[in-house]
Amino acid sequence: MLPCTGRIDESLLLKAFENGADGVMVIGCLEGDCHYVNGNIRARSRVKRVYSILEQIRIGPDRIRMYNLSAGEGAKFAAFTNEFVSQIENLGPSPINVARKQAARESAQEVQAT
């Protein structure tokens, strides 16, 4: 749990993918409404840098997205979450998870063969 999206940096977002996430949603306060002045603006620019990294390594920029919400917008939060989940479902598992499954299948076959 982070107190402010301003604490998020690129390595945290990439770690989520290393840990098996198919997609990552970053939800910050409304722009102009940051308790720490510009934490959410900084988070947005870091998320943009991760878009570009994911694009370069062909994992796909669509697997990460930043939303801005206030704490009182529960219905909007649910709608955004459903939208993002369906976007990720359409994309399918991340190439990392595909490769991991494939490696697990191959090692199981090797064990069976021996």
Partner: peptide, 19 residues
């Protein structure tokens, strides 16, 4: 230090995705 972390994660992801 931050760039080390970001680059390392990026390279691990790219290499693992390539099998």
């Amino acid at each position: 230090d931050k760039e080390v972390q970001v680059l390392s994660s990026t390279l691990r992801l790219a290499r693992e995705a390539s099998g």
